[in-house]
Design a protein around this nucleic acid. Structure first.
Lengths: 345, 345
DNA sequence: GAATGTGATGCAACCGGTTGCATGTCAAGC
DNA sequence: GCTTGACATGCAACCGGTTGCATCACATTC
């Protein structure tokens, strides 16, 4: 093993200085150097100043790995997502990152690519060198998750397992508002363009649509877009138009965006002849027309999840936490009054 | 410090077993247990089997941190990007991730938010616990980058510093093809919607546009969109239309998408009355109309960068590497023949 | 049967920090 | 002047692995 070949020499600075070298150079013990960095209040101001000055000159930086070994605190957390490239995640990652940063933590990012085996592998690699993990839209089965949660503080996002800290984006209120919005605009007959049947979020949304539509006496049909994507959304347009509905709520913004394109290709004007609502609010105003959508607050989810993880790491066990994030409707320009000409069908 | 309170007891299994416990339980030395995991070929098959069986029963997993401390190999790399939420990065991150995974490495992700100070902080936190780093679109100054490169293998993406391994996405060929494409369609007068003046990529693209346009006798005006975004792109539409050009090439896809929206708002039909070309190819077909764009192969960049980092980590110092990735034009539906009515101006 | 070689295993030092406890210094208090 | 205590610093063990070298058992060779 061993250091760089030329690090042994007396005067020559080693490639990366250790605590011992700083100690020797500043004429104090290793313990003092250590304390100068981790518990400076124990030392004279003067000593701290001197040690730090020497350390600075040598370019010394405490070795995190060694520190972690003796303290058990690594200063790392892991975040595993199912697909980095899905626009839902980048804001979440960014927010999680930011929160971790503020606490002085480094974050490992894992990308499971929707594959449970891969996710399990990643967890295995991470778990030894992190103080806690966040699993966003985990595809692992309950048993595995529970096992990992025993070893380390663990927070789930959009996965509802009893006894494990989790943050859930509750799209029901936003969806309800969307239905109300459409009802007020005079729509009586709408479509829900659905996502993956196994997805917790999709179940959430579909149920909310049904419940709320029923309450207001709207008729709702379900049209699948699987897997949910721009393309499947676009392809669904024909069927949706043919069904005679005047508005649609899509599983997510990508599907909604595809739907917009599909409608445009069919010369159906939005919002004049048809209204579209998305879900997640990840596209901002970048669609044409700008999409009315249910804000899923994905950034908040990342922030809150890391926050909960931190408090869990600090030892505040505090039993079960099931943090719900409310959603709300963001009205832009893809929704408008129901067209008068074609009624009910 | 210290372990979990109940880990001391004789029979009770500690929360996370160490090599010593496995050694005792299987009646061999710590060294043997260590070798059973890291160099099994040194041991009898029978011994390996026995040790692993015991380890398994106890739920022992080698502690990465301790291993890293003694070997210097941490099995981690860091990837720092300037903005996770910029659609350019997720594919890059995903590809880098994948490549690292295959090599059994964990990746730290850092988000500098375009801030050099923050980036420097992140590097400082990471550098002690990684074997190498990739800096994508780094905002650090040359001196800092050089210093870090001395301590650890380091690869840059889209940053051109002599003597440091870097992968550069060369958009010139794609931009040239775009100009050729527009010229063939009869456009004589075009606009370049430019990005940040300090950006290496922007300089690249602007120069390529100028050079190629000159070669083909097209006239080019520059219109700024700063910072480059959907909004600034949209706002630039008025000025661009007023200038009398019939086509525009944008610094990136986001700007192009904004421009499309701005044009639509002005009732300028694309591609009938105006052609738009983007850059990066990060939006796929999701714009309306689908965007003709210069593919920047951002995923490849991530993959190649990690690949180079790996070979650098293996000790293949091998002098300077300046890896160029070629780009090409992806023709979709936002470009078409120049309108005949309004000529030159 | 002694010398030699080979392969499996153990011993102990080491990686670079942290920390409980001991030691030393100096000033205040009696 | 001696005790007491507060405070700064040093000593040495420890975290959980890895690894150079020594040892030992056993087989081979002469």
């Amino acid at each position: 093993m061993k250091r760089d070949p030329d690090s042994g020499g007396e005067g020559r600075p080693s490639v990366v200085p250790t605590i011992s070298q700083v100690a020797k150079a500043s004429g104090v013990s290793r313990a003092t150097v250590s304390r100068a960095f981790s518990r400076p209040e124990m030392l004279t101001k003067e000593t701290v100043r001197r040690v730090k000055a020497v350390a600075d000159k040598l370019g010394y930086v405490p070795n995190q790995v060694a520190r972690a070994l003796s303290t058990g605190r690594h200063g790392n957390v892991a975040l595993i997502v199912s697909d980095v490239a899905n626009p839902f995640f980048p804001p979440l990652i960014r927010a999680a990152q930011l929160r971790a940063d503020q606490a002085g933590l480094c974050v490992f990012l894992g990308n499971s690519d929707e594959d449970p085996a891969r996710e399990e592998l990643l967890v295995g690699r991470f778990i030894g060198q992190v103080e806690g993990l966040v699993l966003a839209s985990s595809r692992l089965d309950e048993e595995h998750i529970r096992r990992h949660a025993m070893r380390r503080p663990l927070v789930l996002i959009n996965r509802d397992i009893e006894g494990i800290t989790r943050v859930l984006i509750d799209t029901a209120p936003g969806v309800a508002a969307a239905i109300a919005h459409l009802a007020e605009l005079g729509h009586r007959h709408i479509a829900y363009v659905s996502g993956p049947t196994t997805s917790w979020s999709n179940q959430q949304r579909r149920n909310a649509v049904r419940r709320e539509a029923e309450k207001r006496g709207l008729k709702v049909i379900a049209v699948p877009a699987r897997p949910p994507s721009y393309d499947t959304g676009r392809l669904a347009a024909t069927q949706i138009v043919a069904s005679g509905v005047t508005a649609a709520i899509a599983f997510d913004d990508l599907v909604a965006q595809g739907l917009l394109a599909g409608l445009a290709a069919l010369d159906v004007e939005v919002p004049k002849s048809f209204s579209v609502v998305g879900c997640d609010d990840v596209l901002g105003e970048t669609t044409y027309p700008p999409l009315t959508t249910v804000s899923a607050r994905c950034a908040d989810a990342g922030d809150v999840a890391v926050g909960l993880l931190l408090s869990q790491m600090k030892g505040g066990v505090s039993g079960e936490i099931r943090h719900k994030l409310n959603s709300h409707l963001v009205i832009r320009a893809s929704t408008g009054p129901a067209p008068v000409k074609r009624r009910s069908r």
